[in-house]
């Protein structure tokens, strides 16, 4: 599904290059649950964003579903990630001005899904996540765990093949964290590929593969 060949990311300063990622070679198959681990500043998030097409590599080749991402135009990129990729962030990143219901609905708006279909899909997810009672609340009226639940609901509403999670439990206490991890595990069991960035060994155990990064290098698997 995902294939990275010699991917590097650096920032050009006046005299030298600061490397974030160095010569990453990586292949991830459909259905995997991968955890990217490593100390702060190792380049975990950057790798995640490159995979998620929110950032681009400085060098190397990137294939997503056998398409050459590194040569793609902006429009096609948007197209790809809006139909195949869902994001979950540590800070949830819900839109403050929209209710839970509207937040979950937003990706469908961009995919031009009809009104009745949207209603059905959002209702189904709210039901599944036990959030029907909260649907008209605004993000700041929810607890962190509930916000993250809403964010995950938003990430999976358009049934993406891949979910990218950047420390999804980083801001949550352990009970809530566990709940979120179980949910991700369940999604993976249903066939969704998941890549998460995490500091926690415990969370990494939910996955079936661990990639360790240090100073931009892949250390070992």
């Amino acid at each position: 599904m995902i294939k990275l060949l010699g991917v590097s990311k650096y920032y050009q300063n006046k005299f030298d290059k600061t490397y974030i990622l160095r010569n990453i070679n990586l292949e991830i198959k459909e259905g995997e649950f991968v955890s990217i681990m490593g100390p702060s500043g190792a380049g975990k998030s950057t790798l995640l964003y490159i995979i998620g097409m929110l950032d681009s590599a400085s060098e190397g080749e990137y294939y997503f579903l056998d398409e050459q991402v590194h040569k793609m135009k902006e429009k096609r990129l948007t197209e790809l990630h809006k139909s195949h990729i869902g994001f979950v962030f540590q800070q949830y990143h819900l839109i403050d001005e929209l209710t839970v219901y509207e937040n979950i609905e937003t990706p469908l708006l961009y995919q031009k899904v009809s009104g009745s279909e949207r209603k059905g899909k959002v209702a189904e997810l709210l039901d599944r996540f036990n959030m029907v009672a909260k649907k008209d609340l605004f993000p700041n009226q929810l607890s962190g765990g509930q916000q993250q639940l809403a964010a995950i609901a938003r990430a999976i509403i358009s049934k993406p093949k891949l979910i990218l999670a950047d420390e999804p439990t980083g801001n949550l206490h352990s009970d809530q964290g566990k709940e979120i991890m179980q949910l991700l595990k369940k999604l993976n069991d249903e066939g969704t590929t998941i890549i998460q960035v995490t500091h926690s060994e415990e969370n990494a155990k939910y996955g079936n593969r661990i990639i360790k990064l240090s100073d931009g290098w892949i250390e070992k698997e």
């Binding site: 429009k75 819900l94 001005e97």
Partner: peptide, 11 residues
């Protein structure tokens, strides 16, 4: 808000 919307796939 703009960032999130972009992540969610708006053009």
């Amino acid at each position: 808000e703009v960032g999130i919307r972009k992540v969610l796939g708006t053009e």
